[in-house]
């Protein structure tokens, strides 16, 4: 399965990417097989699939945290490594990875310090990010004083603070309860609208993928491969009640049926 489009719109070009790991018995384990995908600037794209389908592996290859064994990735015509060295990746991991000894504000400033961001403008920048995720009052709190949902929001603020070209999110809400998750879904769409970032979002939750993204890449396991790409033709501005519409249910069904070997 290939997903190609007009080359001038393309920001990320994933070309015949394959990834083979050695398992602990020394056998080859094919995590990804011949992935071809183009992603446009400003898209909210989900990589959706069950565990073992290689969705996180693909995200890590895009982020230059892993080198593919086959094929290549180009972002704005450059190698992922170049983008990483220019500090243009904002990554939100499965856990918030906040440093316990730094206040919320200082956590958001961490990547900016590493980038040698103008020290005088640091407080202004972190305050701006805190406002974006609605945590202004918690600037001087320590991570342990925050709930899981708030911690993950700090993680999002930290990722966006560096003005990334790309926001990569690896199952960022999987550890949160349903109520917090719903709130963050709405926040995420709001942030996407305000910042116009390209977002690549890894998830195993079909509803989450349909609600958030404008395009869903369905990955199937053994070996991890792209089995379908589903366009989500919902309006860009979405509220939670859109999930109660028939069209939403149809999209969920369409995605579910697109997994190879039928429904999951």
């Amino acid at each position: 399965m290939e997903e190609r489009m007009n080359s001038k719109d393309v920001q990320i070009h994933i070309n015949h990417v394959g990834m083979t790991f050695k398992d602990n018995k020394g056998n080859d384990m094919e995590a990804l097989k011949d992935i071809n995908l183009d992603i446009k600037k400003g898209e909210f794209i989900s990589l959706l699939g069950p565990s073992g389908c290689g969705k996180t592996t693909l995200l890590r290859i895009i982020a230059d945290l892993l080198k593919p064994t086959k094929g290549s990735v180009r972002i704005d015509g450059m190698m992922p490594r170049e983008i990483r060295m220019q500090q243009k990746f904002g990554i939100v991991f499965q856990s918030p990875v906040l440093l316990d000894w730094r206040t919320v504000r200082k956590n958001i400033e961490l990547p900016l310090e590493i980038m040698h961001y103008d020290a005088q403008r640091l407080p202004e920048r972190s305050a701006e990010m805190l406002k974006l995720v609605g945590l202004e009052e918690f600037a001087n709190h320590y991570p342990k004083q925050l709930s899981g949902g708030m911690q993950q929001r700090v993680g999002i603020a930290r990722a966006l603070g560096i003005e990334p070209e790309l926001l990569l999110m690896d199952e960022p809400f999987s550890a949160l309860d349903e109520f917090t998750k719903e709130k963050l879904h709405v926040d995420m769409l709001d942030i996407w609208e305000k910042t116009n970032k390209t977002i690549i979002f890894v998830t195993h939750n079909i509803q989450e993928a349909v609600f958030l993204s404008n395009r869903i890449c369905v990955l199937s396991p053994h070996p991890g491969r792209l089995s379908a790409v589903v366009d989500v033709d919902l309006p860009k501005k979405r509220t939670l009640d859109i999930r109660d519409t028939l069209h939403f249910s149809e999209l969920v069904a369409k995605v579910r049926n697109s997994f190879e070997g039928g429904s999951l």
Binding site: I91, F93, E113
Partner: peptide, 26 residues
């Protein structure tokens, strides 16, 4: 913490920065 090293790698942090900002305080 899990992913802490990945996070520093994604910022293209130098070894010295990884030590002083992550490993030493940890």
């Amino acid at each position: 913490k899990p992913y802490a090293m990945d996070m520093m790698t994604s910022y293209a942090a130098k070894r010295r920065e990884v030590f002083w900002k992550l490993q030493f305080p940890n």
